[in-house]
């Protein structure tokens, strides 16, 4: 598979065309948090409904490229219903996955095993982004925004 096809996988295009959990929650009681990418104008707004240490519901709105929009959609699907601790772990692991190390993309070094891929589920579709360094910030925008929201709700 070429780098290009690896970037625009079917799962990514599907989440771009039919984003999951798109919409708004009344805030308050939900927590609203915004993220921007000043370089390309991408914008994401995330609404978090947190109760009893659990992310009961999450909605997102905003606009941006296919990578930023599909990543937000994939993220909401992956974190909804998880404990806050579990959400934090996933966000940390994802941001780590998207980090390009000195020896090339982190995926090549440590995340390429089949077990590892299965663990990521649909999120594994975003792995191709690390081969396009300028697009990494598109893929991580929603995740950084979610992390900011979690930190606002309960500082780490």
């Amino acid at each position: 598979m070429s780098n290009f096809e690896d970037l625009y996988r079917d799962i990514i295009l599907d989440h771009y065309r039919s984003p999951r959990n798109r919409g708004e929650l009344a805030a308050p009681p939900a927590h609203r948090v915004e993220g921007f990418n000043p370089l390309c104008g991408d914008e994401v707004v995330i609404y978090l409904d947190v109760r009893d240490g659990e992310l009961r519901d999450i909605k997102m709105s905003g606009h941006g490229c296919s990578i930023s929009q599909s990543s937000s959609s994939l993220m909401t699907a992956a974190v909804k219903g998880k404990s806050l601790e579990g959400v934090r772990q996933l966000v940390d692991a994802f941001l780590d996955l998207m980090t390009v190390g000195e020896s090339g993309p982190a995926t090549d070094a440590s995340h390429n095993g089949d077990d590892e891929l299965r663990r990521w589920g649909e999120l594994a579709a975003l792995r191709g982004v690390v081969k396009f360094p300028v697009r990494i910030k598109c893929a991580t925008l929603a995740w950084h925004t979610l992390l900011q929201g979690l930190n606002e709700l309960s500082p780490p």
Binding site: Y8, C40, C65, I67
Partner: peptide, 21 residues
């Protein structure tokens, strides 16, 4: 199609354009 995606696809054709504001 978002301009960044337009530019990314065009890069496949070795076409250099600028996406952004």
């Amino acid at each position: 199609v978002h301009p960044h995606d337009v530019a990314q696809v065009l890069d496949q054709f070795a076409v250099c354009v600028r996406p952004g504001h």
